[in-house]
Amino acid sequence: MTAILELCNVDAAYGATQILEAVDLAVEARGITTLLGANGAGKTTTLRAICNMMVRVSGEIRFDGERIDGKATEEIVRLGVAHVPDGRGTFLDLTVEENLRIGAYTRRDKRIAADLDQLYGYFPCLKERRRQQAGTLSGGEQQMLAISRALMLRPKLLLLDELSFGLAPLVVQEIFRILHTINRNEGVSMLLVEQNANIALELADHAYLIETGRIVMAGPTAIIACEDTVRRAYLGY
């Protein structure tokens, strides 16, 4: 298996406050990798470092074999990296459908309408509310919209920041089930940042554990899930 995303010795800082230290991480092509950790461990910062968004980064980041560290956020996105950010990043004043169309902004192909229909197939509730202002959606619907907006880019890699945050468990399960389907059908690689380790370990094939800005454990999920420390700290049994 080849890696679609590789972070090599990456440091990241907000101003003078260093958050990440020497992070090494890889996401396999067509695979799902999860990055687990407590609040403030540096999960969101890792995703921001990949997109060169709001943080100062040093080290080497490769996407699809190409160095992307130092590139502008919008140029990294144009290479095929879609980011569902912390807080969802919904365009609240635009309609649901406009939010989706804006996701396909960089595309020039003719399959945009077909992709829109396909996503409405995955998330029927969005279709019902397509003309509605996105700000009126519920939290779960907004999360679905954020994922759909990201997928409208037809990305090779999807970065997902704490999807489960603030959502009802049933909604979370539903969203993860759809992500699984999308990964299988479309072959989109995913890097999933989560506090909810249970559900993330179920979906992902590889897992990393981050503590205060350092990767402390890495491996296939089947092995990670059995580690005593992980079980006690994150899975609660």
Binding site: F91, I102, Y105
Partner: peptide, 22 residues
């Protein structure tokens, strides 16, 4: 699409960058 992108950029610049808008 350009008009939509301009509205989006005015509303939420951070998210706009994340969908590739300059």
């Amino acid at each position: 699409p350009l008009g939509l992108a301009m509205r989006a950029a005015a509303q939420n610049p951070v998210s706009s960058r994340l969908v590739g808008i300059r």
